[in-house]
Design a protein around this nucleic acid. Structure first.
Length: 479
RNA sequence: GGCCCCUUCGACUAGUGGUUAGGUCACCACCCUUUCACGGUGGUUGCACGGGUUCGAAUCCCGUAGGGGUCACCA
């Protein structure tokens, strides 16, 4: 039975790297008809952020990643929040101590700092010097009776080579002498990631651990833990995902731009586009097709085809994908997303009108935000005019023609795409000029910019009175 | 610095011994066109380097270089 888990710590927003990890776990589970589990790793009380779990749930729902077991839906192997399982970790840590696989360490933070500094000064990698590793039973008892705070550390065997198979990287080996006697249980009684992770993965019967590459170098510690517990036979398979990178190829970080899924949502990205884009960062089913629905991703996903090298999170392609998805949406679906933005800007329009705007703008939009940012002239007269277009189109001749055209517009009884086009073209013909000589200045006068949807449908939608007022106003105010 | 991982166009990638090294984004040109966008056509740009192995290497091996990750009582 395939059982995988997404195990975030609730420390705030959801990083797009986490999103991809969650997605791959989800795709892998769904592809194989397995179980997708959400486990909240909140063992660091100092980093806990209020509301982070709720935010996480909301974000997963928004992108369409679902869970079969987790804090909200429960399940056979709960609880799924680590802070509710501390007793389990404690007894497991005690068992390791009893079996001489771990030991109690009474070193102070100051001493540890000191040791690390010394080792670094000697050009050694900073590791714990195993000072408490060989305390006698009596010494330990004495310190415990004296109430000296302590941690429990893993007794890493010396002189072994630890090899494990990674589904994306093949066999990976580490010398045990390079592995620190890792803290398993902190002095506050909470487990560290390593202990909690291994204990939970075992008890939750996790079959595959799919996580970011930053965990690769701590995997031997986990392997050692499985061995110490005698769980080697049920050790999960590991798959370490390539990192998502900044443009400078460092690990994707907040400092260099948006990394929170929430940021992308706010900037007008569609969840389908984000998912599609992120899915193809580090994995590719064919290389000829670029657009995949969630169901297609599920049916095509193969963990073995995940790449080894990190992938730069390049926004241009995401923008392109977003525009592709916007074009595929129905006006009604878009209306739902655009309407709140329009209301937030203080514009008051009917759904019918807004939907017409959406239809006209849909093909020229890269973000949902563009429906208000680049379409404001549908809701209000332009407050400024684009300089470049003005220079090119707002000539004395153009103004003269518009002033002649204005009364013709006013006199029109029918106001629609065809009648407007006919009027403009016949006027242009009567003056023996190209229609473009009219169209461009008109666009500028009415919209304030030099680009946009077809002029005739635009004028038809904005309405005769408003159009005439804007022409009038431009003739007076635009120099 | 130790350890580990990685290396095909600017970016995402296909490619598993024989290809004119393919696709997508971006970029450029042209076409379409009332602008923009869409669409269409074409184009510039790449196997990090050096040695092997082989009739033949982007593909296999070994080095070098470069990049990244990790070395907490954080995950």
């Amino acid at each position: 039975m395939i059982r995988v888990r997404f195990a975030p710590s609730p420390t705030g927003f959801v990083h797009v790297g986490s999103l991809r990890t969650a997605l791959y776990n989800f795709l892998f589970a769904r592809h194989h008809g397995g179980v997708h589990i959400l486990r909240v790793e909140d063992t660091d009380r100092t980093r806990y952020v209020d509301g982070a779990v709720e935010n996480l749930l909301r974000t997963m729902e928004w992108v369409g990643i679902t869970f079969d077991e987790g804090p909200t839906q429960g399940g056979e192997y709960g609880p799924y929040t680590q802070s509710e399982r501390t007793e389990l970790y404690r007894t497991h840590a005690d068992t390791l101590v009893a079996n001489v696989k771990a030991y109690r360490c009474f070193c102070t933070a100051e001493r540890l700092d000191e040791v690390r500094k010394q080792m670094q000064a000697q050009g050694q990698p900073p590791m714990y010097d195993r000072h408490c590793r060989n305390l006698t039973t009596d010494e330990v008892k004495g310190k415990m009776d004296a109430g000296i705070p302590h941690v429990i550390r893993l007794r890493v065997p010396l002189g072994e080579t630890i090899t494990f198979n990674d589904l994306v990287r093949g066999d990976v080996s580490f010398e045990s002498k390079t592995i620190d006697d890792q803290v398993l249980l902190k002095s506050d009684g909470f487990p560290t990631y390593h202990l909690a992770n291994v204990v939970d993965d075992f008890h939750m019967k996790i079959s595959h651990v799919i996580r970011g590459e930053e965990w690769l170098s701590s995997t031997p510690k986990h392997v050692l833990l499985y061995r110490a517990f005698g769980w080697e036979d049920s050790m999960p398979k590991f798959a370490h995902l390539p990192l998502l990178l900044n443009p400078d190829r460092s690990k994707l970080s907040k400092r260099q731009g948006d990394v929170a899924v929430e940021d992308f949502r706010e900037k007008g990205y569609l969840p389908d586009a984000l998912i599609n884009f992120v899915a193809l960062l580090g994995w590719n089913p064919s290389a000829t097709e670029e657009i995949y629905s969630m169901n297609e991703l599920i049916s095509q996903f193969e963990i073995e085809k995940v790449n080894k090298a990190g992938a730069v999170f390049g926004k241009e392609k995401l923008d392109w994908m977003n525009s592709e998805y916007i074009r595929k949406k129905s006006p009604d679906e878009l209306l739902e997303m655009v309407k709140p933005l329009v209301i937030a800007r203080g514009y008051d329009v009917t759904d019918e009108y807004l939907k017409s705007v959406i239809v006209l703008m849909q093909e020229r939009t890269r973000s949902i935000l563009d429906f208000v940012d680049f379409s404001d002239y549908f809701f209000d007269a332009p407050k400024s005019f684009e300089e470049k277009s003005k220079l090119k189109n707002w000539t004395p001749e153009a103004k003269e023609r518009l002033s002649e055209l204005l009364p013709i517009f006013v006199a029109m009884t029918e106001w629609n795409h065809d009648s407007i086009e006919a009027t403009i073209r016949s006027y242009a013909e009567s003056k023996a000029i190209s229609a473009g000589k009219l169209i461009h200045p008109l666009r500028l006068a009415v919209s304030g910019v030099g680009m946009g949807p077809g002029l005739f449908e635009m004028l038809a939608l904005i309405g005769k009175n408003e159009v005439c007022e804007r022409i009038q106003s431009a003739l007076v105010n635009l120099v």
